[in-house]
Amino acid sequence: MTLSKEKLLELYKKMITIRLFEEHAVELFANGEIPGFVHLYIGEEATAVGVTAILGDNDYIASTHRGHGHLIARGGDVKLMYAELLGRKTGYCKGKGGSMHIADMTLGFLGANGIVGAGPPLAAGAAFANKYRKDNGVAVCFFGDGASNRGTLHEALNLASIWKLPAVFICENNMYGISMNQEYHQNIKDVADRASAYGIPGISVDGNDLFAVFEAAEEAVKRARQGDGPTLIECKTYRWRGHFEGDPTVYRSEQEVETWKKKDPIPRVKKRLLDLGVLTEQEDQAVWDEIRKEIQAGIDFAKSSPLPDESELLEDVYCD
């Protein structure tokens, strides 16, 4: 499948939604309206959107602490997301989870995760469920270069490879595990190299190139659905913000950040849309304006929502 013009425009809109969602989260956090920690996805939009573009109804996603982009790409509701970020009763998790634990089971979104590297075994299990039910579904796991050193990934890749699970492992290599540059945290340049240890395909792509990401994901998902087992895809990208909001980012230079901002994934897609004649400059403005309104509506919804009632403290610890 190649991307139709309509589909491409839809993906472009999702990338913009992620960008604007996160930019407003910066503001909300700075204003003290978001408690706890928030980890933003700005700069990595092409990866989430390129991968999820290929997914269908029976598919699962295991996300990370930097998960807003994955959920928006999968079709998450920004109103419920903002409400959760603000700890409101109307949020995705009734205000019990926050940014790091947003889940949407109706979208097969098995949650952001506060534990780095927790996702791969969960995704292997979801992929097993797909295989067990023979429903042609796949499970996608996002994780970072930092998480790629964890045993969880290696155990999951091993299990997925021997059981030929319909899983796709997406390493979002944004060059840092918190403050530690990849150069210092692992002795390899390409995380994809680790695939060979499990006898599965591993590929590195430009994570800021929507088309490259989509193509790689399409191939991997096809393999998975055919019963040929998992693939490891490394998307080389960069987070424009710190590890978390409030991170002083003393570990990297302004120059490095500026270099990567020049590789912004969004204008690259816009250029393709303009070239294809799907979009004009004027229409582009309208697209941004429309999404700004949607984002503002989400924030308004969250801010006008009540906090959870204290009587809800002990609810949902167990199923009845």
């Binding site: 089971m105 098995l110 075994p121 292997a124 469920a129 039910r133 499970a139 155990e155």
Partner: peptide, 11 residues
């Protein structure tokens, strides 16, 4: 981990 994922996915 895989058991948790499979359980979350309905098994």
């Amino acid at each position: 981990g895989a058991s948790v994922g499979a359980a979350a996915a309905g098994l």
